[in-house]
Amino acid sequence: MRRRHHFHIDHAGHSVSATVETGRRVEVEILVDGKETGHGTTHADRPVTVQVELPTDPPTPVSVRTTPGPGVPRCVLAAPDAEPHVMSPRPY
């Protein structure tokens, strides 16, 4: 059975959101400031990392590491020269 989970964080003045659709095949979609900028897939409970850029000058590369399970998925934003940040789950 497929299920969608949503996560969000504000970082460096930008909005980063992740949608994780779980099931046999896990799909991860990353939005930066409301625009789709990255996509990744994995199987079962294997983690997946999606590389995206924040639209700064120059662009800042960041990554979102998603751990689909077991249990509820978890997303962590990693940026250069900063501690990794756990993204907050959203109920919608």
Rank of each mutant, 00 (worst) to 15 (best):
Thr41Glu: 15
Glu83Met: 10
Val16Pro: 01
Asp57Pro: 02
Pro61Lys: 13
Val62Met: 01
Val16Leu: 14
Glu83Lys: 02
Pro80Arg: 11
Val26Ala: 00
Arg24Glu: 15
Thr66Cys: 14
Thr22Asp: 07
Cys75Pro: 05
Ala44Gly: 02
Ile9Asp: 04
Arg2Glu: 15
Asp81Ile: 05
Val48Gly: 02
Val16Gln: 02
Gly23Lys: 12
Val50Arg: 11
His11Gly: 03
Pro47Asn: 06
Arg4Ile: 03
Ala18Pro: 03
Leu54His: 03
Pro73Val: 01
Thr49Asn: 06
Ser63Asn: 07
His11Trp: 05
Arg90Val: 13
Ser63Val: 09
Gly38Arg: 01
Tyr92Gln: 11
Thr37Cys: 10
Pro70His: 11
Arg24Gly: 15
Val32Ile: 09
Ala12His: 01
Gly71Leu: 08
Arg4Asp: 14
Arg65Leu: 14
His85Arg: 15
His43Tyr: 04
Pro91Asn: 14
His6Pro: 01
Glu36Met: 13
Asp81Thr: 11
Arg24Tyr: 12
His11Tyr: 10
Val32Asp: 02
Ile30Asn: 01
Arg25Gly: 08
Ser88Pro: 00
Asp81Trp: 11
Val76Arg: 05
Tyr92Asp: 13
Ser17Ile: 00
Arg65Asp: 04
Arg24Met: 05
Gly34His: 08
Pro70Trp: 10
Asp45Val: 05
Pro58Trp: 14
Ile30Asp: 00
Arg24Trp: 07
Val76Tyr: 05
Phe7Gln: 03
Met1Val: 08
Val86Gly: 09
Glu27Lys: 10
Arg65Ile: 01
Asp45Phe: 07
Val86Gln: 12
Val26His: 00
Val52Phe: 03
Val62Ile: 08
Leu54Ser: 04
Gln51Asp: 12
Thr60Asp: 01
Thr41Tyr: 09
Pro89Ala: 12
Arg3Lys: 14
Leu77Glu: 04
Val20Gly: 01
Met87Gly: 02
Thr42Gln: 08
Ile9Phe: 03
Arg46Lys: 13
Leu77Phe: 09
Arg24Gln: 11
Glu27Arg: 09
His5Pro: 02
Ala12Leu: 06
Val86Ser: 10
Val52Met: 08
Val20Ile: 14
Glu27Tyr: 03
Gly40Asp: 04
Arg24Ser: 13
Thr19Glu: 15
Met1Phe: 12
Gly34Met: 12
Gly23Met: 10
Glu53His: 13
Leu77Asp: 00
Thr49Trp: 04
Arg24Phe: 10
Arg74Asn: 03
Thr22His: 08
Glu21Pro: 02
Gly13Val: 09
Pro70Phe: 13
Val76His: 06
Leu54Gln: 04
Asp33Ile: 05
Ala79Thr: 05
Glu29Arg: 12
Met1Asp: 08
Val26Pro: 00
His5Tyr: 15
Thr67Pro: 02
Thr60Arg: 14
Val20Met: 01
Asp45Ile: 04
Val72Cys: 06
Ala12Val: 06
Arg25Met: 07
Arg3Cys: 04
Tyr92Asn: 07
Val48Asn: 02
Val16Asn: 01
Leu77Ala: 04
Gln51Pro: 01
